[in-house]
Design a protein around this nucleic acid. Structure first.
Length: 497
RNA sequence: GGCGGCGUACCCAAGUGGUUAAGGGAGCGGUCUGCAAAACCGUUAUUCAUCGGUUCGAUUCCGAUCGCCGCCUCCA
């Protein structure tokens, strides 16, 4: 089966063929560390996390790099706002703000089970690489200097606009930018900005200053992944101008195609409008986890839709996701308790199965195939998830049927498949029997359940119901089955808030 | 103004040029159960914004119209 990806550059789904066999080099634009993480960030990094995981699952060796923008206007603005309390310099505060929000970023992404990239290069640690790049662009006439600012001259890059599908003329006509008279073309963008009083700055051949935003991604991606690499991703708002500019700089610099596949994720909206600071409709991850502490609920919400579609956020949807997620867990819990925590390793001979068992066996094969087919189709996580639903359905239909319910080998196979596919999307990680066994009050819970069972046998419903409701208050939900009572624990709060 | 995307049941959301238009949530009816929980069964789009065109055949391709959204300014 071959993987197909939608490439913003060509506007088409293309067969995925990395530049080097079996190896994938992937860069995703990271965060500017100046404020709390919100759902929009989660959407982007969860989407690319699923992509990253799937590529590895397909057998590629993936080198994943994500930058951290730790110097820029917004960080400086933020530092200025915090300035009055202390006597520390603006420079020190900029550093502190950047460090604080970098830490926050990792905290939330880790909690969301986003796998770490191989490298997180920081802009401030790569100024030298950027200077080298800018110098060459100047030397070769792709850039020009005005009063300590350096601009890229887009007229020197004929294919400018190829990513966003616009022509320079169109853009000039519709430009809403204030025209800077010093620029040759209104669309020329800064490679280097002359320092302003008190702001962080570095020495350069054009005087004290700091890098423009776009140059850091060119410098760092090429440094760690080479002048041509496979995947470059980010939010769709970055298509223009950020990624367009990266292409112009990088290709002018190297003379080679910069990136083979450009991937962009759609936005999170609330009530149909883009989540943004100016509209004040942002949900931070902290707010979200306070109410919905299980990170998999948020992941399910984000991955229930295709990564390129816009996704509208409401709390009601998270409630739905919570229920949907519990369907998986109910089955996983059930299987685990039926096999008493020990999955069967016995090989299954399809010929020896009963008709019912065979039905489930075939469903397992089908799900295995369909999940991968969905993911191969431009990482269609929505469809992939739906394939798991149908396995759960068939397994549930048969689980109370003694002919199937007792087949531990078969149920173990269902469990393993769900875990294997779930892992690609970052699900069911909080659920392996070792972890369940480790619930600190497990023995006490199980002895209470045994006590309740005796009460039920004696038809002492009052006592039985009291035990059940006491446990419920502790977040333990009981389920009675013909084989006995199973239980599960509900996550009640987010441990890192 | 330019460029791009979207419009599928009560809600969310996949999808395909042609036998029954996935899946999830919700509702209703039922099964199971001491009760619950979980789960299962049945049911809720003769139809895919509207109008035309191409075609033997379109929800899927093309065009127009209406509505919504994004980018063109920092933004995941």
């Amino acid at each position: 089966m071959t993987l197909k990806v939608y490439n913003t550059l060509t506007g088409e789904k293309e067969g995925f063929l990395p530049l080097r066999k079996d190896r994938v080099r992937m860069y995703v634009c990271g965060v500017t560390v100046y404020d709390d993480c919100h759902l929009g960030h989660a959407r982007c990094y969860v989407a690319f996390d699923a992509i990253y995981r799937y590529l590895k699952y397909k057998g590629y060796r993936v080198k994943y790099v994500q930058n951290i923008t730790d110097v820029d206007d917004k960080i400086i603005t933020r530092a200025r706002e915090e300035k009055d309390q202390g006597s520390r310099s603006l420079k020190a505060l900029v550093r502190e703000v950047a460090q604080r929000y970098t830490k926050e970023y990792f905290k939330w992404m880790d909690y969301l089970k986003v796998k770490r990239a191989a490298l997180y290069p920081k802009a401030t640690e790569h100024i030298g690489d950027m200077l080298k790049l800018i110098q060459r662009l100047l030397d070769e006439g792709y850039a020009y200097e005005v009063d300590g600012d350096v601009y890229f001259d887009i007229s020197k890059f004929p294919s400018y606009g190829k990513l966003s599908g616009r022509s320079i003329d169109e853009m000039r006509a519709g430009a809403r930018v204030e025209v800077d008279e010093r620029k040759k073309n209104p669309l020329d963008f800064a490679l280097w900005k002359r320092a302003k009083e008190g702001e962080p700055s570095w020495n350069s051949p054009w005087g004290e200053g700091r890098p423009g935003w776009h140059i850091e991604c060119s410098a760092m991606s090429m440094k760690y992944l080479g002048e041509s690499f496979d995947i470059h991703g980010g939010g769709e708002d970055l298509i223009f101008p950020h990624h367009e500019n990266e292409i112009a700089q990088s290709e002018s610099y190297s003379g080679k195609p910069f990136v083979k596949y450009w991937l962009h994720n759609g936005f999170v909206t609330t009530r149909g409008e883009k989540m943004s600071k100016s509209l004040g409709n942002i949900f931070t991850l902290k707010e979200l986890f306070q109410e919905f502490p299980d990170p998999e609920i948020t992941r399910l919400f984000l991955l229930s839709m295709h990564y390129r579609s816009p996704i509208d956020f409401t709390k009601e949807k998270l409630v739905e996701m919570e229920k949907h997620l519990s369907h998986f867990y109910n089955l996983l819990d059930f299987i685990l308790q039926i096999v008493k925590g020990k999955l069967s390793k016995r090989r299954i001979d399809p010929e020896s199965l009963s008709k019912e068992e065979k039905g489930l066996y075939q469903e397992i094969q089908k799900t295995d195939k369909e999940f991968d087919q969905a993911m191969d189709d431009d990482f269609n996580t929505a469809r992939a998830l739906a394939s798991l639903d149908s396995l759960v359905k068939v397994a549930n239909t048969l689980k109370d049927n003694p002919k199937v319910g007792r087949n531990k080998a078969l149920l173990s196979k269902v469990y393993r498949l769900l875990k294997e596919k779930g892992e690609i999307l970052g699900f069911f990680e909080g659920h392996c029997w070792k972890e369940m066994i480790r619930v600190p009050d497990r023995e006490e819970i199980e002895s209470l359940i045994a006590q309740r069972d005796r009460a039920r046998q004696e038809k002492d419903w009052g006592l039985a119901d009291r035990i059940r409701s006491d446990l419920k208050k502790r977040g333990i939900i009981l389920e009675d089955h013909p084989e006995g009572t199973t239980w599960k624990k509900i996550k009640k709060s987010c441990p890192i808030i």
